[in-house]
Nucleic acid binder design. Structure first.
Lengths: 167, 167
DNA sequence: AATATATTTCAATTATTTTTGAAAGTTTGA
DNA sequence: TCAAACTTTCAAAAATAATTGAAATATATT
């Protein structure tokens, strides 16, 4: 397999994988492209390489920067902007985990707390509902705490965690 | 908040959450409904409660059974089928993790192995591509191993893991 | 200040995914 | 074997999400 084919395969597969996890294809692909690029890339080049429109590129680059996993880089003497990706994978995973926690898990916890706090009268259906949503609240809460714990380790938390698990 | 409102809020929020993680709304909602139900439910009742069509209910119930997190239950003397959800949350998380590993992570690893194995000639771009995809392969591989390790613990792995992390 | 270059915004379009509903299929029991 | 009860399938429709492209906005240069 040659370089062009391999790169293309990587970009395609990563885009599809993103979709399966609720991340839009282009966003995943731009990130993937920046990840495997040895230098900062201009918007023009991103559009070119992924065959996407200016608007699409602009919007998804903003989204990636909002996630904190892509940065602007200004080249001296260059008018236009260049982009680079966070390339440290521990850092990347940490940021994604934190954002997903903030955007999705925290609100879910809030809801679970609310609905599990209803005044349950005696019907078995209501009792079971409260019981289950409480359990869910505990479980999700613990999972979220774990994310927090693990991602404040900073350096190579995944490796360190693996070692702990082996003991 | 009364029971009906709480239940509805739970079903709605859970459905939306599912979407954000690449699981279709109805599938997430059916699962949520079964999770908080104290008894097995018929397809008719699911359609009724979630206001969905027969086809939709049938297809998503099959998908949930394929994931191994919903089962059929036959009531004696009843012609139609009833459904129940896996209610143990450790078991649920384990099954979801295993399925996602099998369906998504393993294929991604296969691709990463392929594309990182190209004969890299001397251009910095190619060298960097190989380097990054190799790192990605290692990282994803370790994450996948961790999932495997953690989910074979069986009982209350999340709690046990939390304890380990605190030490 | 005027012009050129670059980026963002967003209504309209296009693509994708989900849902419907009716026909076909299956199972049970009379 | 027939018919009633129930489930699955799948082409068409609807809903949702992503993308385009051109006008508006912003920024730098002369």
């Amino acid at each position: 397999m040659d370089f062009a084919t391999a790169k293309n395969k990587f970009l395609q597969t990563w885009g599809a994988l993103g979709s399966q996890w609720g991340i839009n294809k282009t966003m995943a692909q731009i990130h993937a492209l920046l990840m495997v690029s040895d230098e900062a890339i201009s918007m023009e080049d991103i559009m070119q390489e992924l065959q996407i429109s200016r608007g699409n590129a602009s919007m998804n680059l903003r989204a990636l920067m909002d996630w904190g996993i892509v940065y602007k880089e200004n080249k001296p003497g260059e008018r236009r902007e260049f982009f680079i990706a966070e390339k440290d994978l521990d850092e990347l995973a940490t940021k994604i985990a934190k954002e997903r926690s903030k955007r999705e898990i925290k609100p879910a916890l809030k809801m679970l707390k609310e609905v599990s706090s209803i005044q349950a009268n005696e019907t078995p259906a209501e009792k079971h509902f409260v019981e289950q949503t409480k359990k869910l609240y505990d479980f999700v809460g613990r999972a979220d705490e774990m994310i927090d714990k693990v991602t404040t380790y900073k350096d190579n938390w995944l490796g360190k965690l693996m070692i702990k698990l082996l003991k």
